[in-house]
Computed example of a mutant assay.
Amino acid sequence: MNQTIETILNHRSIRSFKKSPLSEEEIHTIVKSAQAASTSSYIQAYTIIGVRNPEKKKKLAELAGNQSYVEENGHFFVFCADLYRHENIGKWEGADVMASLESTEKFMVSLIDTSLAAQNAAIAAESMGMGICYIGGIRNDLEAVSEVLGLPRHVIPLFGLAVGYPANDSSVKPRLPLHAVYHEDGYKTDEAAMKAELDRYDETISSYYHERTGGKRSDRWTEQMAKMLSGKKRMYMKEFVEKRGFNKR
């Protein structure tokens, strides 16, 4: 096992950061690492917005559900799916690109490109001794987030990334068993085997929470998922995405 793999396998979300702003060099290294990620057909369909302004960080923290670590970190990045520059390229080059930009395919490309870039950024930060926490809470109100960041049409903020030097450590949360997510030569649909595997995972997760919280919590993973998926959350998303000029065809 090499150092890169050790960094990846040691990942945990950090929600408490030292009051040490990242240097320009650290920020640029993280962004350049994000840019080195694979991109579909060289489209590079994303933009990364670094948020320094204290009032904007405070507002984003509120919009994300009052998550303090959105405001208090070394640096806060917002990763956006971005086809705005490609819309302008079409105008400048005299090409009709709108049907393509509004397609489900290019919507998926922009989501995938952005996610690949973000994970590169996360690994780069962790390899430098920093901690990270992805912030999906900014999708609670994307209209307001877009207003805070001044985002044009064909740009969607997908998630934030809080980065900084950890003030407190946390333990690695157990993932699903390898065979639950890795199938060879086709999808394995044996429900009995799936149930048995998830039952064992539930025991692992329940023990993890029990130990971490001193017995105050011992819920199972399947219990968490059933509860979460039974509710309706951010159901405005389809309308917002189409309003932004994505996924219309």
Rank of each mutant, 00 (worst) to 15 (best):
N2Q: 06
T4P: 00
T4F: 14
I5K: 07
T7I: 13
L9A: 02
N10F: 06
H11I: 08
S13D: 14
R15L: 06
S16V: 11
S16W: 05
F17W: 07
K19D: 14
K19T: 10
S20A: 09
P21F: 10
E24H: 08
H28W: 12
H28R: 12
T29K: 15
K32F: 12
S33M: 11
A34E: 02
A36P: 00
S41M: 13
Y42C: 13
I48W: 03
G50S: 12
V51P: 01
V51W: 01
E55P: 07
K56C: 01
K56Q: 06
K58C: 04
K59D: 00
K59C: 02
L60D: 00
L60G: 01
L60Y: 01
E62P: 01
A64D: 00
G65T: 06
S68I: 05
E71K: 01
E71Q: 06
N73D: 05
G74L: 02
V78K: 02
D82V: 06
D82Q: 08
L83N: 03
E87A: 13
E87S: 11
E87Q: 08
I89A: 13
I89T: 11
W92I: 10
E93G: 05
G94C: 06
M98E: 07
S100L: 12
L101T: 00
S103K: 01
T104P: 00
E105P: 04
K106D: 14
F107G: 05
F107L: 03
V109N: 02
L111E: 04
T114D: 01
A117F: 04
A121P: 00
A122N: 11
E126K: 08
M128K: 08
G129K: 08
G131R: 04
G131I: 04
C133W: 03
I135P: 03
R139C: 07
E143G: 11
V145Q: 01
S146C: 06
P152G: 04
H154P: 00
H154L: 09
V155I: 15
P157L: 06
F159D: 10
G160A: 03
V163K: 06
G164D: 05
Y165S: 06
S170M: 12
K173S: 14
P174S: 08
R175P: 02
L178S: 10
L178Q: 10
A180L: 10
A180Q: 03
A180E: 11
H183R: 09
H183K: 12
D185E: 13
Y187K: 02
K188L: 13
K188Q: 13
T189S: 11
A192P: 01
K195G: 00
D202R: 11
E203T: 10
S207E: 15
S207C: 11
Y208V: 05
Y209I: 09
Y209R: 05
H210T: 13
G215F: 15
R217W: 15
D219G: 12
R220Q: 13
R220A: 10
T222D: 07
M225K: 05
L229W: 09
G231F: 08
K232F: 09
K233Q: 12
R234G: 05
M235Q: 13
M237L: 15
V241A: 07
E242P: 14
F246M: 04
N247A: 14
N247E: 08
R249A: 11
